[in-house]
Amino acid sequence: MDAKNKFLSGTLNTIVLALLSENGRMYGYEICQKTKDKTDAAILLTEGAIYPTLHRLEKDGLINSSKEKVNGRIRKYYSINDSSIVEINLQIDLLTQFTGHLRSLLKPSL
């Protein structure tokens, strides 16, 4: 596991929840592409990472899924579970604060 993946492993849940909060409903491939675009390809989510995360979040009740027919095939869309919105916002806030603290520790001059 390279350094970038190590950082990701603890934050992937929150990243996915933040993307879904911002964009409404998304499908797995879309989340990968969005992450790639937003980070100038610095963060690439692999299939082996994103789908288990989505399935776990769904099982935990934080997100919902629905299926739709697109281009002749079935697509699975994910969206935030409204009843978990408080918990999700809390998770996002905590990670945002945490990255702020990290920055002040790593680059105190900034």
């Binding site: 491939y29 990968c32 299939e47 789908y51 095939r73 079935i74 699975k76």
Partner: peptide, 16 residues
């Protein structure tokens, strides 16, 4: 279910 979801993933990739 998961094979279906992954198939959509890779077809999307090809389309892109």
């Amino acid at each position: 279910d998961k094979i279906q979801e992954m198939t959509d993933h890779y077809l999307s990739e090809i389309e892109d």
